[in-house]
Amino acid sequence: MVTYTDEIRKTAKKLLEDKTVDVFIGYKKGTVPMMNEPVLVSDADKADTLYWDSFCGLNLCNYLTKRTDRIGILATGCNSRNIVTHIIENQIKRDQLYIVGIPCTGMIDHRAVLRAVKEREILEVTENGDSFTVKGNDFNETFDKKEYLQANCKTCTHRNPVEYDEVIGTPFEEQEVSEAYRDVEKIKGMASDKKWDFFTQMISNCIRCYACRNACPLCYCPTCFVDESGPQWVGKSIDPTDTMTFHILRAYHCAGRCTDCGACERACPVGIPVRQFTRKLNKDVFDLFKWEAGLSLDERPPLDVYRPDDYNDFIR
């Protein structure tokens, strides 16, 4: 996966030099290990700052919203699906974009790695094919990448970009995932009071920093409902009811649009598995409408349209 870096730099340089794009959006190596940062490169000479490994977890689509210039952008499977959603939702035009697709083998869950080294400070990470090595002051450990993938990457069935102008590397066969929604099924099986306890417990650490919202490319409204005051939909406090309202409404706003890119969960500073909310809706939308977000430029998400054969069994 690391080998992509050179090709990305080459491609970006070429696109910037021949003025195909005004800016190229990719990642650069983070100042902290396992935290690559998004970067916008507009000078061909600075294309070498671009970098790629299995810690590119932030969703680059975030940086496209309402831009008016011509943009080159890196896109993994999920990122490309968000780009498609962005195009459908008029946040960017397809002809402004030069999409450089990247078949993705999944991103590494930095928290899982930290846990694996017993939360000791990691100073350096090097990736080598299917494994990676972390170094600290008094340790040096190698792990199998597959074991440390982000949860969303483990169940990902769209690793190849769905919309692109060129691809770096060769697309590979998508993985077969059985019981992709085992976690959702488990919660569904709980009694309602257990469910309530589960979710109350889950969000109890939430500090309402809105990092999950900010990391999400779907959240681009000029004014978020949490900031509206007339009427006020959600209290500003960290009262559990308000916090729950925030999480549920945020998830509803993502229904039928979420690509399960995992950016929200990765961004959460207190480690709340916020995808539990969105995944339930992803599953429902798939079960009811056979829909996965961002696979087609021609079709709006199912909740945006009315079809006579829409699911209506809930009407009694």
Binding site: F225, W233, T241, D242, T245, I248, L249, Y252
Partner: peptide, 10 residues
């Protein structure tokens, strides 16, 4: 909208 439903519960 879902907002009303949640508001009613709140």
């Amino acid at each position: 909208s879902p907002k009303f439903i949640l508001a009613a519960f709140r």
